[in-house]
């Protein structure tokens, strides 16, 4: 979908993220607007956005794993939790600097995730769903009974600091999380448009054919799993330091279900889709929790969110399986020729 007069002659051109000057302008101005958000948005909105950044990073991971490589994982929240605990323990108990601990906790989450994936990756079908479900329960059980994780008390996580700079206010934390989100988005985009991404798609579409073409299916699946969990770990680590206190109840099975929902609603196999899915649902949830209701009615708000979430997933699956991202593409296509369109 490019304006007339733009010809791309190489594969590299075709795969580039930003293609025209207009796109550069829009991208840069959007970035500036977002970075300056703390100056014109309410504090609460900034807090919501900071946390959404962490969730988004984790959603990017499950998009690669489930959307691109076709491996359904129902344990993303647990792997997110592994990252959160790893980072909290590394920074608070072992004194590792934050900047290393973020990436270390991503690697730890990747290792743990792959360990749960390995038994089932050899099998076709839905063994992976069951294995990751088991992983979700086992990890949360272990986390809530280990001594070094703080058990049911939870574990503290200090404010993140890089060198002399401490991120201890709402805007600062937002900038930190947002810059990590940009970094991880770029990384995700590069993975999926590179060699590994093509291998993921081949394995998802037909693994036997992929095998014949010379792709090591087993290794590709494991790599997809590791990448998905690495992203979850990074997101979890940022979330831990953002919230300051982590507790096993933060990483429940229903949260894992929500991750799957985000990518379905946003659109499978699309990095932009993650943004749409998360933003859509965070908005709905915020609107519902901001409704002024009495103490008796407030208890119906969260169940309604759950029902709405499920209904939207099913509606999207039935009527528009490509998700909101596809809608957005259609909208863009419509607007490109808007005043002078033809039927």
């Amino acid at each position: 979908m490019d304006p007339a007069g733009i010809y791309r002659t190489t594969y590299l051109d075709d795969m580039s993220i930003v293609r025209t000057k207009t796109q550069w302008t829009i991208l840069i101005s959007a970035l500036i607007l977002t970075v300056l958000a703390p100056f014109y948005l309410s504090k609460n909105l900034i807090d919501v956005m900071s946390l959404s950044c962490c969730i988004l990073i984790s959603t990017l991971g499950i998009q690669i794993l489930t959307g691109y490589a076709g491996q359904i994982s129902v344990g993303q929240a647990a792997f997110y939790g592994v990252g959160a605990y790893a980072s909290a323990i590394l920074v608070n108990d072992l004194g590792v600097p934050f900047i290393f601990s973020v990436f270390l906790s991503g690697l730890i989450a990747a290792a743990v995730g792959s360990a749960f994936g390995i038994p089932s990756l050899r099998l076709k079908g839905f063994y992976l769903v069951m294995a990751t479900l088991a992983g979700q329960i086992i990890i949360i059980y272990l986390v809530s009974h280990m001594h070094f994780t703080g058990g049911m008390v939870g574990h503290k996580a200090n404010y993140p600091s890089i060198g002399p700079l401490t991120f201890d206010t709402g805007p600062r934390l937002f900038w930190l999380n947002f810059s990590f989100l940009l970094l991880m988005t770029l990384m995700a985009k590069n993975i999926v448009r590179g060699r590994w991404g093509r291998a993921f798609i081949a394995v998802r579409d037909n693994d036997l054919a992929a095998n014949v073409m010379g792709i090591n299916v087993y290794r590709t699946k494991i790599f997809a799993f590791a990448v998905g969990c690495f992203f979850a770990g990074i997101g979890g680590s940022l979330a831990a330091h953002y919230t300051g206190m982590i507790h096993p109840t933060q990483f429940t099975l229903m949260d894992s279900i929500w991750y799957l929902g985000y990518i379905i609603i946003g659109g499978l196999s699309s990095i932009t889709g993650c943004y749409f899915g998360v933003i859509f649902f965070v908005t709905i949830k915020e609107i519902l929790t901001h409704l002024p209701v009495s103490a008796e009615m407030a208890q119906y708000i969260l169940p309604i969110t759950d029902v709405a979430f499920g209904v939207v997933i099913i509606l999207i699956l039935i009527f528009d399986p490509k998700g909101l991202n596809h809608r957005w593409e259609l909208f863009k296509g419509y607007y490109r020729i808007w005043p002078l369109g033809y039927k």
Partner: peptide, 22 residues
């Protein structure tokens, strides 16, 4: 695809949970 149908049961799970809670 079975993948889509499993995702639909994911949605179902969330709906039933919400209904029970409400």
């Amino acid at each position: 695809s079975p993948f889509t149908q499993i995702m639909a049961t994911v949605g179902l799970m969330s709906i039933l949970y919400g209904i029970v809670m409400a």
